[in-house]
């Protein structure tokens, strides 16, 4: 272990890999000093583990109904968080719901930033009227309230998990385009870009291979910070009945079904909300911490 850390801390790295890993290690050390960020990291890791091993963690099947066990309060034998109106174990449904949430978040986290990166780098690199047109389009999408646009899109596409992902992705790319454009403007006149161009590289190659990697860190930070928002939007769509459809276990949908028994059986709506809250908080804390580590401008503060 000690040889590994000395290798990582070597001020004169022998290879590119060693230098990169060393940088990563230093970042991790800085990250570890931030207790709130560590809590966020822990929550997100737990969520990932819970989703990966859902069948092992859950005590019951999330879909099978058992009407003799309806609406049992929390801490009744075998049901840690109680049961819902169909006698399904709420804890198990929350555990399986983590998969749905991660699925939505994962897909949005891949599609929206890639799209935003493409638009932003192209706009920033070419400048001129390309920039004008692309940024005007970005502004129009930014001008729309996200949830309302997502609602209108779901109205067209029809409710469902894939369409919810599409609607959220289509409404959340503009900030990434803005960030990517700003980063592109700072590097597009750099000498190393000129050097690549003189070697005969085309615009596509320059953007893909030399501009985009420079935009990645700031976009990744933005993505982590936005994850909580994506979770909330997805849950909101589910709550309105426009996202994931029953009997699938999705946290927003579970809250919506618990609404009917709010005053008598409070736990049905409360528990999945707590899950959303904790997970969003985790992503927010993690995002804050990552920003401090990856973004040198805010590291000093």
């Amino acid at each position: 272990m000690t040889t590994l850390t000395t290798w990582l801390r070597d001020p004169n790295p022998a290879s590119r890999l060693q230098a990169r890993l060393g940088q990563g290690y230093l970042g991790w050390l800085r990250f570890r000093r931030n207790p709130l960020a560590m809590i966020g990291f822990l929550i997100v890791s737990l969520l990932l583990l819970m989703a990966a091993f859902a069948p092992l963690v859950a005590t019951h099947d999330p879909i099978t109904q058992n009407l003799t066990q309806r609406l049992l309060p929390p801490l009744t034998a075998g049901h840690l968080l109680g049961t819902d109106e169909f006698g399904r174990d709420i804890f198990s449904r929350i555990v399986f719901g983590a998969r749905v949430t991660l699925y939505i978040v994962g897909l949005v986290a891949i599609t929206a930033p890639i799209f935003g990166l493409l638009i932003g780098t192209v706009a920033g690199y070419f400048g001129g009227w390309v920039d004008q047109v692309l940024m005007r389009i970005t502004d129009i999408f930014l001008a729309f309230p996200k949830l309302i646009l997502a609602l209108a899109l779901v109205a067209v596409l029809g409710p469902g998990i894939e369409n919810a992902v599409l609607a959220i992705a289509l409404t959340s790319w503009p900030p990434y385009a803005r960030v990517a454009r700003a980063e592109t403007l700072t590097v597009r006149n750099a000498d190393y870009i000129a050097a690549v161009r003189l070697q005969g590289a085309g615009a596509g190659r320059i953007i893909w291979g030399y501009v985009m990697p420079m935009c990645l860190p700031s976009v990744i930070i933005r993505v982590t910070l936005d994850m909580a928002g994506v979770i909330l939007t997805a849950a909101g769509l589910g709550f309105l009945g426009l996202g994931v459809q029953p009997p699938m276990a999705e946290w927003g949908l579970m809250i919506s079904s618990g609404r009917k028994f709010l005053f008598e059986q409070w736990w049905v709506a409360t528990m999945p909300g707590l899950a959303i809250f904790i997970v969003s908080l985790g992503f927010n804390l993690l995002g804050d911490g990552l920003r401090d580590v990856l973004d040198p401008r805010s590291a000093g503060k």
């Binding site: 909580a228 928002g229 909330l232 849950a235 909101g236 927003g252 908080l281």
Partner: peptide
């Protein structure tokens, strides 16, 4: 930033 508004409303 972490609480769903509809859940806070219900609570």
């Amino acid at each position: 930033y972490s609480m769903p508004v509809f859940w806070l409303g219900l609570m």
